[in-house]
Amino acid sequence: MDPHLLRTFVTVARLASFSEAARKLGYTQSAVSQHIAALEQDLGAPLLTRRPVVPTAAGERLLEHAGPLLLRLDAARADVVRMTAAPRHGLTLATTPTALGVGVLAALPPAGVTLRVLTREEIPAAVATGTADLGLVDGLAAPSDPLRLPDVAPLTTHGVAEEPVSVLLPEGHPLAARTGLRLGDLADARWLDAPDAALPLDHLRAATGGGAFRSALRYEGTDLHTLTALAAAGHGLTLLPRRVATAVPGTAAVPLTAPRVVHRTELIHGGRPGGSAEGVVRRLVGAGRVG
């Protein structure tokens, strides 16, 4: 399939409009219609209904393939550019909020840095397509076990930190005075669902082999101050790296004692990094840990 036609199809389906897709892509509306017709003829199936503009069953199935295919094409282009172009000035680092520690900050160059806080799912794609030079992702894992990252492109990963985790509770919570907590005993507690700020609830379920871990409140943001304020106000528990959970006003950070898991941070890059990125990789990977 022609990737230009595929990209047009994805844009029309996402915007639910031929005219909006034409404006987005810089084409005429007639050209967009011709792209969709050519793709439908190639596949021998209608992909979109016209009024309203929604994918058919065949179109829905094609969309499942289209995202990874187009991402891989963008990643291939970025990888070749990295190999042949001179190192860029400056550094763009994509990171989750809980992956940033003093070790990372100390490893950054004194100037020319752009920091982008993204979701865990967005960071590998940003590095693969060259919109970020380096990425920092984190998650819950058994000690020394690598994180499970989406296979978006050939990326190099380095484990740069492992640290204990703590359950953050309001200071008046019945369990706040405990010296340790078992995650399995908290499966039916009220939890904050904050997949882009805290350790996601599906990580907790995977660590215990199940359990409800129901959401009392969902927070769709990346600001740690907002997250910890919600925990302090009693809207739900959350699991955080120990350094983040410690000394938050109005809360108690109780160490997690079972299962034996850690908060793991990994550095990712594509190809061989150059310029400022090379220095950061050398400092972080050589240090072996990020505090």
Score class of each variant (00 low, 15 high):
residue 147 L to M: 07
residue 250 G to Q: 10
residue 214 R to T: 13
residue 91 L to D: 09
residue 24 K to L: 05
residue 109 P to G: 12
residue 94 A to Q: 04
residue 236 G to Y: 04
residue 37 A to I: 00
residue 139 G to W: 04
residue 121 E to A: 12
residue 156 T to E: 12
residue 169 L to W: 12
residue 255 P to E: 06
residue 233 A to C: 13
residue 220 E to F: 01
residue 190 R to H: 13
residue 105 L to K: 05
residue 248 V to T: 10
residue 28 T to A: 14
residue 259 P to A: 04
residue 178 R to C: 13
residue 99 A to Q: 00
residue 199 L to T: 10
residue 200 P to C: 08
residue 82 R to P: 11
residue 87 P to G: 12
residue 173 H to G: 07
residue 243 R to F: 09
residue 159 G to P: 12
residue 106 A to M: 13
residue 83 M to L: 05
residue 155 L to T: 05
residue 134 L to R: 15
residue 287 A to L: 12
residue 202 D to Q: 15
residue 31 A to K: 06
residue 111 A to N: 04
residue 47 L to D: 01
residue 34 Q to T: 14
residue 267 L to W: 04
residue 159 G to C: 00
residue 57 A to P: 02
residue 140 L to S: 09
residue 266 E to M: 11
residue 125 A to S: 14
residue 48 L to R: 11
residue 269 H to D: 01
residue 38 A to L: 10
residue 6 L to D: 06
residue 47 L to V: 04
residue 197 A to G: 06
residue 105 L to I: 01
residue 53 V to S: 01
residue 94 A to D: 10
residue 274 G to K: 04
residue 145 D to P: 08
residue 252 A to R: 15
residue 120 R to F: 04
residue 103 G to W: 13
residue 213 F to Q: 06
residue 221 G to C: 07
residue 283 R to K: 02
residue 232 A to I: 03
residue 16 A to L: 11
residue 151 D to S: 09
residue 145 D to H: 14
residue 192 L to C: 02
residue 160 V to S: 11
residue 40 E to N: 00
residue 185 D to V: 02
residue 19 S to H: 01
residue 132 A to R: 01
residue 41 Q to N: 05
residue 190 R to K: 10
residue 6 L to I: 12
residue 141 A to K: 09
residue 72 R to V: 07
residue 180 G to W: 10
residue 13 A to Q: 14
residue 69 L to C: 06
residue 265 T to D: 03
residue 227 L to E: 15
residue 281 V to C: 09
residue 283 R to M: 02
residue 17 S to W: 02
residue 155 L to G: 08
residue 37 A to H: 11
residue 182 R to H: 07
residue 129 T to L: 08
residue 31 A to R: 14
residue 31 A to I: 04
residue 31 A to V: 05
residue 87 P to H: 02
residue 115 L to G: 11
residue 187 A to W: 10
residue 219 Y to F: 15
residue 144 S to N: 11
residue 71 L to T: 15
residue 45 A to H: 09
residue 52 P to Y: 03
residue 208 T to E: 09
residue 261 V to F: 13
residue 54 V to L: 14
residue 105 L to P: 12
residue 279 G to T: 05
residue 210 G to D: 08
residue 180 G to Q: 06
residue 269 H to Q: 00
residue 175 L to T: 01
residue 131 T to K: 13
residue 67 G to T: 15
residue 119 T to V: 08
residue 82 R to T: 02
residue 203 H to S: 13
residue 92 T to F: 02
residue 190 R to I: 09
residue 79 D to C: 01
residue 216 A to N: 08
residue 262 V to K: 03
residue 21 A to Y: 00
residue 230 L to E: 04
residue 41 Q to V: 10
